[in-house]
């Protein structure tokens, strides 16, 4: 079972601080609300493959493994996958060894939820395959079985 210890525990309550056109809560210029706790960023051993830079430039700003800005527990894509799968599979893509190029392409080219489609002018099919290879190698190097 590919269940990860860090992602599996039910999130406790902590602060999500977001700023959206200056919307504000009680703590200054940021809005604050209760949400999932900052699980320690999972240990990711990044594979040294061409897909790494492609992933870091195009995917990691939402799907990276680390915490989000402003003390949010996770980046938005990682958070969405955590909510969707509730720990059944790792929320961080770099810990998934089950995403081949075709599976990734399905989401990349069709979009899902708030994530829109990515076009070939920004991410070619070969780029998507390179990302898939990087994710698999990274998941393996990070000890995901």
């Amino acid at each position: 079972m590919r269940r990860l210890m860090l992602m599996a525990s039910p999130p406790a309550v902590a602060l999500l601080a977001v700023a959206i056109y200056g919307a504000e809560g009680t703590g200054g210029q940021t809005a604050q609300a209760a949400t999932a706790s900052p699980a320690a960023a999972p240990h990711v051993v990044k594979a040294d493959l061409p897909g790494r830079a492609i992933f870091e430039h195009n995917c990691a700003p939402c799907h990276g493994a680390g915490p989000g800005d402003d003390g949010t527990p996770m980046l938005p894509g990682t958070m969405a996958l955590q909510r969707r799968y509730e720990g059944e599979v790792p929320a961080a893509l770099e810990l998934r060894d089950d995403l081949d190029g075709d599976t990734l392409r399905l989401f990349v080219r069709n979009g899902i939820g708030a994530m829109p489609m990515f076009r070939k002018s920004e991410l070619s099919d070969a780029d998507v395959d390179a990302v898939a290879a990087y994710l698999k190698a990274t998941a393996e190097a990070s000890g995901v079985k």
């Binding site: 977001v18 894509g77 939820g113 708030a114």
Partner: peptide
């Protein structure tokens, strides 16, 4: 500093 953090709330409701 650019980021995508806003999508934590962007279309997922709040809380």
């Amino acid at each position: 500093i650019p980021s995508m953090e806003i999508f934590s709330v962007g279309s997922r409701g709040f809380g």
